[in-house]
């Protein structure tokens, strides 16, 4: 009944030229990114795939930390929904984080990130859950009254239709007014990926 191949993760670098065509990365950058991928994917089990534990380890340098957002980011990268990341998923997702990636892609990614229940809108209860998680993860303490007033103010500004929801259109207006909200969807490091991982030249498939 099902096409199992759809869920099978392809291992290895694959065809860097196809990935380069379909992402903002050049062929060399795809190859350099693969060096990073190999490093992360071999941290726990050297199987050429990144599992959630390896992703957490790379992010926090510990696998002990519980993080709502690390889980969310991993799940968004994991487009095949099989709990592991192949290189292609990793490269395609990180392409959104490139400084030269279209801003619309960044808006879409950040919206999906915060749309915890995949409802097509962000509701108050989700915002509260994320604020509480952020505070807990960073060891900050704010009273419930203060948290509620932060959320009140946010909805006052973002919820222009007063229906208690921040849909994609409202999200777009909000982030265009506050570009800093997209800051964490841009990684300057990706511009220098070939100099950060110069060893890619030893494995390069393309002649320069």
């Amino acid at each position: 009944c099902c096409d199992f191949d759809l869920y099978k993760e392809s291992r290895g670098l694959g065809d860097p030229e196809i990935l380069a065509r379909e992402t903002v990365f050049s062929v060399s950058e795809v190859e350099a990114l693969y060096e990073l991928f190999k490093k992360i994917s071999s941290a726990v089990i050297d199987d050429g795939l990144i599992n959630k534990e390896e992703f957490q380890l790379a992010l926090f340098k510990t696998n002990k930390k519980e993080s709502l957002f690390a889980d969310r980011v991993f799940d968004l990268f994991d487009t095949k929904h099989n709990g592991i990341l192949g290189f292609e998923e990793f490269a395609r997702a990180l392409s959104v984080f490139h400084p030269n990636a279209p801003v619309d892609d960044k808006i879409e990614f950040s919206f999906q990130l915060y749309d915890l229940k995949h409802q097509g809108f962000i509701e108050r209860q989700e915002v509260k859950q994320m604020v509480v998680a952020t505070l807990a993860e960073s060891g900050m303490n704010l009273s419930d009254d203060v948290i509620e007033s932060i959320i009140d103010k946010t909805f006052e500004e973002a919820d222009t239709k007063h229906d208690g929801k921040i849909d994609k259109e409202k999200w777009r207006i909000l982030v265009l007014r506050h570009p800093s909200l997209l800051k964490n969807v841009t990684l300057q490091y990706l511009k220098d990926i070939t100099t950060t991982f110069p060893s890619f030249v030893f494995h390069s498939q393309v002649a320069d």
Partner: peptide, 25 residues
């Protein structure tokens, strides 16, 4: 002044959203 802060500004400071640490050696 946390009260004047946008909730999403606060959320975006979360360590779990800071992918730059993926690149640290």
């Amino acid at each position: 002044k946390p009260v004047t802060m946008n909730a999403f500004e606060l959320i975006s400071t979360s360590q779990g959203l800071n992918l730059s640490s993926l690149f640290e050696k």
